[in-house]
Design a protein around this nucleic acid. Structure first.
Lengths: 78, 78
DNA sequence: CTATATTTGTGCGTATGTATG
DNA sequence: ACATACATACGCACAAATATA
């Protein structure tokens, strides 16, 4: 099953839906501190979204202060 | 003369250069409070940049707390 | 009320650059 | 030298909000 969590008819845009799903994974401990979250390419295939959407979802997490991004390495849970 | 202010070899990316130029216009009063700043399309032609870059420049101003954006209307100086 | 134009929002794809391992 | 991963930047299309004719 692929990409079933994103609802195009939601009041929330796709990037926010993905961002909130990742936020839940972080707050629930599924993605613990110091863990690397999925790469942009992995998010693209997991949620069947484009690069723009994947990047905006990660940006959402950064703005929320949940992760930090290191170029060339990845994005890590704070 | 068009697009002479953006230096591709700068340490700052194009979106930041445009953002800083607009920031100067605002802080100097060239763009006063309640004034609408140039639209994305206008920024594209003035600085010879793409829409992605124009939008990031405006986002820079929003993050700096200098402007507010109203969908369908434009971006206004605070 | 309707239609059109304008402006920002979302989303896709692609290419190239930079940093890291 | 090479692979991986994020950063920047381009273009395009359509949707949604707003203003105007």
């Amino acid at each position: 099953m692929i990409g079933f969590m994103i609802n195009p008819k939601s009041v929330h845009p796709a990037w926010k839906q993905v961002g909130m799903i990742l936020e839940t994974r972080i707050r629930s401990g599924v993605l613990p501190a110091d863990e690397r979250i999925p790469t942009e390419v992995e998010l693209m295939s997991e949620f069947e979204i484009g690069r723009t959407t994947a990047r905006k979802a990660v940006e959402y997490l950064r703005v929320a202060g949940l992760v930090t991004t290191q170029p060339g390495r990845g994005t890590y849970v704070l």
